[in-house]
Each structure stands twice: as structure tokens, then as C-alpha cells.
Write a protein that binds this DNA or RNA. Structure first.
Length: 179
DNA sequence: CCCTGATTCGC
DNA sequence: GCGAATCAGG
């Protein structure tokens, strides 16, 4: 796709409106967010200001020396086999001394028995931010400006999160008597 | 992992 | 000039 005057104009407009590069790329179509960002820079459009000023201080002109693609020319030889005697038939993986940090799972109030009318909070995503694994359940009136999508994580390739999945695919209520 | 913008550099 | 690859940060 070329950067026609029209497209450049739209780019400028959307960028000035604060849309993200990926959002703009989505609207323009045919270009990646990288393309958009690259173009923005080439046009000398103002970048996104970092509020507060805490950042933007460090920015080495040349952070990347030169050695991106080493190709497959190295030999994996660093095998330091620790001779640790294991009980017969017990093959341990790798990690011997491992810092085991706790991963305490937060238990959300999700009663697995019947009475669960818990409506998950939505992430209020905009159409352009939906990805392959975000719930696409619409919320609100599309004509209203507060319209958004659920946006919570959806399993694998499902278009909806586990909650909205049920709403979307409610089995015909009367048909559980089969046996 | 998802996303964001910034930069470099081969094309 | 273009934008993929990459870096860096949230």
C-alpha cells in the first residue's frame, strides 16, 4: 500500500487524536503498526509525550551495535552434567537448585455450585483492540459512545470468555432429561 | 502474554 | 522512503 496523500492525511489526523499506532494501522488497512510508527517519524510528527517527565531521559542514540542474526553456527556444548545420584528410575528434569517463588492463586468468588450470577468486569476494549483471544461480547448500545467489548480472555479460539460463552451458546433449556 | 512507541538499517 | 526486526517500557 502506498502512502497516498489521503492516507497520510488520515494518519496525521488519527495520530493527533491520540490513537495508537496499531489502531491507526487497523483503520488505514494494509499496513502494520510499525509502518505507521515509521511514517510518523519520517513526517516528523510529534511523538507521544511521556507524562511526568520521569522517563525519556535515557535514550542512547545507538543502542544496538550490530549483531542481530548470528545464524545457526554455534554448538550447544555447555552441558554441565552434575553427577547427582538419583533413586533408580527417577529421572529428574534439569533444575536442581531453583528459586521456587510462590505463585499464590487468587481465588475469585466463583461459586462452582449453581448460584453463580457473577458478571465479570469487562476490560472495556474498543473494537480495534480486540485480538484473537479477547472476548468479543458487545456491551452497551453501539450508537452510544460508551459502547465497548468485554475484552476478557477467551479460551483458545473462542470468540467469547467463559462467562459470555454460556450466554452465547445457551443450550435449549429443556433437554437435559435425556438418559 | 498482551500492548505501546522508538530506533536501526537493509531494501 | 519504507517497514520488519528489534529494543525498551507498561
Amino acid at each position: 500500500m502506498n502512502w497516498t496523500d489521503e492516507r497520510v492525511e488520515k494518519l496525521k489526523k488519527l495520530w493527533s487524536e491520540g490513537l495508537s499506532a496499531s489502531q491507526i494501522a487497523a483503520q488505514l488497512g494494509g499496513v502494520s503498526r510499525n509502518a505507521v510508527i515509521g511514517k510518523v517519524h519520517r513526517l516528523n510528527l510529534p511523538g507521544r509525550a511521556k507524562a511526568g517527565g520521569t522517563q525519556s531521559a535515557s535514550r542512547p542514540k545507538r543502542p544496538v551495535p550490530a549483531a542481530p542474526r548470528p545464524a545457526t553456527t554455534f554448538q550447544a556444548r555447555a552441558v554441565t552434567a552434575r553427577s547427582v545420584v538419583r533413586p533408580a528410575g527417577n529421572t529428574i528434569t534439569k533444575e536442581e537448585v531453583e528459586t521456587d517463588f510462590e505463585t499464590q492463586r487468587e481465588q475469585l468468588p466463583v461459586p462452582s455450585n449453581g448460584n453463580s450470577v457473577v458478571v465479570p468486569m469487562s476490560r472495556r476494549l474498543e473494537l480495534t483492540q480486540l485480538t484473537e483471544r479477547t472476548c468479543k461480547w458487545p456491551i452497551g448500545d453501539p450508537l452510544n459512545d460508551d459502547f465497548h467489548f468485554c475484552g476478557n480472555e477467551s479460551p483458545d479460539n473462542s470468540p467469547y470468555c467463559t462467562y459470555h460463552q454460556r450466554l452465547a451458546y445457551q443450550p435449549s433449556a429443556e433437554r437435559r432429561r435425556m438418559r
